[in-house]
């Protein structure tokens, strides 16, 4: 057959596309379950990290919290998962763990649901709030956990889609995340301000100023972190105000 004829070209193209599509479809479906399990386990691992659970006891030995271990121990620490409406009421029919913040953020605020996790670690209760916002190149997200005064940050964990390695991507590093622990999310007059990432921060170890030091070269990503913390937390205020057993420092 003439290799330069139209018929040959078409047949070749068709066969190639079918073969390639079949290979890709097969790989995708056969690996799908494993990929989803990785994502689910990582989510549980991240949630546990924010409340300081980074190792668990396995057969009397302390072991680092790997993804499979996070899955196995998740229910031991997370006591309650609820989805909230904008007015602070609990949406009973929504599975909080399955809420996809990326999809929620596209809806108008009134229709969004806000997941809230309650954890108990060594007798202390913590509240974990998933956060999500925009970095420089794409989405950034993470979890922030609050102590039971709903003011002091216990821990944070961040992740990103496509921030620059060495610059914006550094928000995922422990040394940056540690700056947030014990910071307050309410200012001294009781307004919710979140924790701001500030360039040229001079506050040293001051935990009451609602600010932490930024990463040099990652200004936009840092602003994104500040914005998402403040924006997401503000939607939980109505719920926190309703809880009478909370010692919330709000006006």
């Amino acid at each position: 057959m003439d290799k330069n004829s139209n018929a040959y070209t078409f047949i070749f193209a068709i066969i190639m596309v079918v073969v390639v599509a079949a290979i890709l479809a097969f790989t995708s479906t056969s690996l799908q379950e494993k990929q989803n399990a990785n994502v689910r386990q990582e989510k549980k691992q991240n949630i546990l990290y924010t409340v300081g659970v980074d190792s668990v006891m396995v057969d009397g030995e302390k072991q680092e919290l790997t993804r499979p271990l996070a899955e196995a121990n998740f229910d031991k620490y997370i006591k309650k998962m609820v989805a909230l409406n904008k007015d602070g009421a609990v949406a009973e029919d929504v599975d909080a763990f399955k809420i996809d913040l990326a999809k929620e953020l596209k809806k108008p605020i009134e229709e969004q649901v806000f997941p809230l996790y309650e954890a108990e670690v060594q007798g202390e209760t913590y509240y974990i709030i998933p956060i999500r916002g925009k970095g420089l190149w794409g989405a950034i997200w993470g979890y922030i956990s609050l102590k039971n005064d709903v003011n002091t940050v216990k821990g944070v964990i961040f992740d990103h889609k496509s921030e620059t390695p060495g610059l914006g991507a550094e928000i995922t590093k422990a040394w940056f995340e540690e700056r947030f622990s014990d910071e307050r999310i309410f200012d001294s007059s009781g307004n919710l301000v979140g924790v701001s990432v500030v360039k040229g921060y001079g506050g040293g170890n001051d935990k009451e100023d609602n600010a932490v030091n930024a990463i040099s070269g990652a200004t936009v990503t840092g602003d994104g972190v500040s914005d998402m913390i403040e924006e997401r937390l503000s939607h939980y205020l109505p719920y926190f105000k309703k809880q009478e057993n909370f010692k919330v420092a709000v006006k």
Partner: peptide
């Protein structure tokens, strides 16, 4: 293919 395999086995 590389991307899919990495996601499943080297997350």
């Amino acid at each position: 293919l590389v991307d899919q395999i990495l996601k499943a086995y080297a997350y």
